Amino acid sequence: MSPIDRIRTYAGELTALRHDIHAHPEIGFEEVRTSNLVAELLQGYGIEVHRGLGGTGVVGVLRGRSDNGRRIGLRAELDALPIEEATNLPYRSTVPGKMHACGHDGHTTMLVGAARYLAETRAFDGTAVFVFQPAEEGLGGARAMIRDGLFERFPVDEIYALHNAPNGPHGRLKTRPGPIMAAADFFDIRVQGRGAHAAEPQRGVDPIVVATALAQAMQSIVSRNADPLKSCVVSITQIHAGAAYNVIPESAHLAGTVRTFDGDVREVAALRIRELARGLAAAYGAEIEVEIRDVFSVLDNSAEQAAAAAEVATELFGAENVEADCVPRMGSEDFADMVMAVPGAYAWLGGTPGPGLHNASFNFDDSIIPLGSAYLARLVERRTAA
């Protein structure tokens, strides 16, 4: 029986698990219920469980039929997003303002499914290490686990992760050697002006005018400062200022993100944000404070592991459902920090096309759970035999 067929025999239990996690979302470093649920399931399968890495992370260790020294890591994310769910699903979020809008509930479920399969079959040599990571959504969960000694306590030769792709095609796996997802910086820019009556603007320094001028100027970074042959995105995603119709406020706040694949472009973007802020502060007589934070590194797949991922997917899904040199994406993933520590590969698995990631109407495609679980489990079987 193929791993897909075997896992399909308990796909109903996995789907119920996914719905349970979806109904009880927890955002970064708050995943107490979710991590407890995962730990209890792993223990029930006879897997050695370690808790508390990176705060709420869980690591499972499973030894195969013999020990040849090979150790393969598999990683999934536990956290949800601060989004109010807009679906009417029977298992919709029961927590106001929180939702699994990226599919981490599905990824966790797929890794649990892989762990169960491997624990029941033990058709592998070496050791499987299951990493359930907290706080992937921009809060540094991978870095927290690494700081807590993830790879010192649980060394692996290589590590793999999988993400759903709601744009489809259904059942197609995409990966590539080299950069597959962008680096990300988050920025906060605080403009300090001088408040005044809205009817007497000459008595103040309007921070809204300064903030909007800066927002416009920052769009020139991509078009006029970044190398046009190298990708760069500068997105302002928040502007906050004021609380009344007839008051010029004291301050304004802009926030957003920069996405790049190239270190030089990343430095240019950060430099220009600071230079534009200084220039506009002088021009308008305001004060501007800029904070730029390195949140995600470039996710750079190791060539050998990307080839292994494609090979396993071809075996399971057929060559027509594997794209081994896909186009990189400007999204970011902190699995990047794990593959900077050990060789590894990241891949996308297509679901039935529907609302996109981080959308209030998103719903993970349960039909790909057995596919993802089988893919992760087969990686352990094949790579421990290497």
Rank of each mutant, 00 (worst) to 15 (best):
P3Q: 04
I4W: 03
R8M: 12
L14D: 04
A16Y: 07
H24S: 05
G28L: 11
E31I: 09
R33T: 14
T34Y: 05
L42Y: 05
Q43H: 13
Y45K: 08
I47Q: 01
G52H: 12
L53A: 04
V59D: 05
L62D: 02
D67I: 14
D67K: 06
I72L: 07
R75V: 08
A76W: 02
L78K: 10
L81D: 03
L81C: 06
N88S: 15
L89K: 10
P90S: 10
S93D: 03
S93F: 06
T94R: 15
G106D: 04
H107Q: 13
L111H: 02
G113M: 09
R116Q: 11
R116D: 02
E120M: 09
T121Q: 13
G126F: 00
V129W: 05
Q133M: 12
G141A: 08
D148K: 04
E152D: 15
E152C: 06
E152W: 05
P155I: 15
P155G: 12
E158R: 14
H163T: 09
G168N: 10
K174Y: 10
G178L: 12
P179L: 04
A182M: 01
F187E: 00
D188K: 10
R194H: 14
E200H: 14
G204P: 04
V209L: 10
A211I: 01
L214E: 01
S220I: 07
I221P: 00
V222Y: 09
S223D: 10
D227R: 08
C232G: 06
V233Y: 01
V234T: 06
H240K: 13
H240M: 13
G242T: 07
V247H: 04
I248K: 00
I248N: 02
P249N: 04
H253W: 14
G256D: 08
T260N: 13
A269K: 02
A269Y: 01
I273L: 14
I273E: 01
I273D: 00
L276E: 10
A277F: 03
A283L: 07
E287G: 12
S297T: 11
A307C: 07
A307K: 12
A308N: 08
A308F: 01
E315W: 08
F317C: 04
G318L: 12
N321K: 14
G331C: 09
S332R: 02
H358D: 08
N359D: 15
I369W: 01
S373Q: 06
E381N: 06
R382I: 09
R383W: 00
T384Y: 05
A385T: 11
A385R: 14
